[in-house]
Design a protein around this nucleic acid. Structure first.
Lengths: 112, 112
DNA sequence: TATCGTTATATTTGCAAGAACATAACGATG
DNA sequence: CATCGTTATGTTCTTGCAAATATAACGATA
């Protein structure tokens, strides 16, 4: 009957959100562009919003997830720490596994 | 390291949302109270919001999910159809199974 | 036929999240 | 030491969504 199951997952540490889909998308864009402002542009969100998100991620994580440099040639930049990369790939794995699992659960709707 | 994985799932049919956690909560309250207005009160949402939600559910489902009567002694009421009950229990099962699965996935964060 | 508590719906109001704007600081380089 | 593109923040402005408000319709009952 054309049913689809969709999901959204996120990781919390303590009472704070650490990573969700939007944050992961932003972190990946930072990895690709090497800069927070370019990442923001590529996702069509304001620099301010991107900065606030990254700040929240770093504040709720004990080890930092991004590293940034200010000034210098090119103005500076931002990149992921290895811990950040690990977190992202863990998130992706968990997310994919969740989708797969939900696809199997679809059968529970077959006769509805 | 105190990580928690949270999730939110919903069922779509075509391009419309059929059921999500909020809608299921509302339908259960209707089942318990026998009335849309009482259900809304118990969930502390406006009658309008509750009505809009139920209307959306019934519009995106081919078979109706609730049945309502207007007027008469007591003013009328609303209750779930058997199809509605089936949908709710399927949703609950899928949701619980998803939580369980995500709990197992937590191990992927152990050393992060 | 007046009453009552409900369903059903339109319209207005309020507010909070996000967008937009502004500005300071930074450091390599020429 | 002026320039440049970035990071890092604070402040104001907007707007979409939720809440509040209003009102019609309904039908069993006494």
């Amino acid at each position: 009957m054309n049913y689809k199951i969709k999901s959204r997952i996120w990781i919390e540490v303590g009472n704070n959100v650490l990573l969700g889909e939007g944050r992961v998308r932003l972190l990946k864009a930072i990895e690709k562009t090497g800069s927070l402002s370019k990442a923001a542009k590529s996702l069509k969100i304001s620099y301010k919003k991107a900065w606030t998100l990254v700040d929240a991620v770093n504040k709720s994580s004990k080890k930092p997830v991004t590293e940034s440099s200010i000034g210098g040639v090119g103005g500076g930049g931002a990149k992921l720490t290895s811990h950040g990369k690990d977190l992202i790939s863990a998130f992706d794995e968990i997310n994919k596994s969740c989708w797969k699992h939900l696809d199997q659960e679809l059968e529970k709707l077959y006769n509805l």
